[in-house]
Simulated assay, not measured.
Amino acid sequence: MNGKKGGTNFQLTAEEHANLCVKLEEMLDWGCEFDGELVQGRPLPRAFVNAFGADPRRSPKLLGFMLWEGVPANASQTQAAQGDFYRKRDEWEAAWSAEQQRMRALAEQAVLEYDSGQQAPGVASGQLMARLSFLAQSSELKAPSHFGLQKVDERPPPRTGEDLLAALRAGLVFLEEVVADGFGVDNLKITLRSLSSETLQIALRRGTIFQQRSWNHRQDLVTGVDYVILVPPGGCVTKEVLGYSMNFTCPPPRNDEMHIAEFYFDVERVLGSQALIWDHFQSLFK
């Protein structure tokens, strides 16, 4: 029987053949019998029967394929493989549990530090700082400056209009919804409702950050262009804008609801392209 990837032929003992048949039944959960047609048990898939026959134990092609894929043929090899499998599984589960614990601890720290005050509805920064710190392989929160972030309060006022975050805090507008889908042109949809009796010019400024609301392991976004949104008295306006992805470790957002963060990113040489933003943040995650 040819059961080696290098093409080597070898003979199975009766014990090895029986052991392979047991492994085959375990893998297939096989419990059917054929005598021209199904006699009892759960039927095998028709394509499988066509390829290997009704009784897999009589198919040297299938047993050879199992050996070719590395299924051990004798009991000692099987026990060693099982031990290695369970050891790796236990190691993976321990590592996964430790990562989950680190995520929860970072989220608790970040919410306490950044979201325990009186934020306007739709404004939060804790998840952003927890995620960035997690991606940076840290068990403690990294300072915003580590990632090149600054507090919005430290930012000069816009040349035109009212800064979006300032307008939210002042109760001039209400953030009805922010939804992100993918990254690139018009991937970020923002809906504002006016709480004013006057027409408002709301400045959505370059470098404004939108965070995921939870640990869904999808990307946070940063705007790459300045926008001015006209909101009529008592009216509601939806604006689609460009949101750059802040990392490529996580997949893009998929119709995710977002928060606006109280930090902004304003590194002029970086905000010019998606590639430069990825280079900046990914270099901090090593």
Rank of each mutant, 00 (worst) to 15 (best):
A80H: 02
A80Y: 00
A80S: 04
A81D: 00
A81Q: 01
A81W: 00
Q82Y: 10
Q82L: 13
Q82I: 09
Q82D: 09
Q82P: 01
G83Q: 15
G83N: 13
D84S: 06
D84V: 09
D84L: 12
Y86S: 02
Y86I: 09
Y86G: 01
R87K: 13
R87Q: 12
R87H: 08
K88R: 12
K88E: 12
K88T: 09
K88L: 12
R89Q: 14
R89H: 10
D90G: 00
D90N: 03
E91R: 02
E91I: 00
W92H: 08
W92F: 10
W92G: 02
E93R: 12
A94Y: 06
A94F: 06
A94H: 09
A94N: 10
A94M: 12
A94G: 04
A95L: 11
A95R: 15
W96G: 03
W96A: 08
W96H: 10
S97E: 15
S97T: 12
A98Q: 14
A98M: 13
A98Y: 07
E99W: 02
E99V: 01
E99I: 02
Q101T: 12
R102P: 00
M103L: 11
M103F: 02
M103Y: 03
M103N: 03
R104W: 11
R104D: 11
R104P: 02
A105T: 06
A105N: 08
L106D: 01
L106S: 01
L106V: 03
L106N: 02
L106H: 03
A107H: 07
A107M: 11
A107E: 14
E108Q: 14
Q109H: 08
Q109K: 15
Q109V: 03
Q109S: 07
A110I: 11
A110R: 14
A110Q: 14
V111I: 14
V111H: 08
L112E: 15
E113M: 13
E113Q: 14
Y114T: 15
Y114G: 06
Y114W: 13
Y114V: 13
D115Q: 14
S116R: 15
G117C: 08
G117S: 11
G117Q: 15
Q118P: 04
Q119Y: 06
Q119F: 05
Q119V: 09
Q119I: 11
Q119A: 07
Q119R: 14
A120R: 09
A120V: 07
A120G: 04
P121L: 02
G122T: 07
V123Y: 05
V123T: 08
V123A: 05
A124H: 06
A124Q: 11
A124S: 07
A124E: 14
A124P: 04
S125W: 04
S125Y: 04
S125A: 06
G126I: 00
Q127V: 08
Q127P: 03
M129A: 04
M129N: 05
R131I: 07
R131T: 09
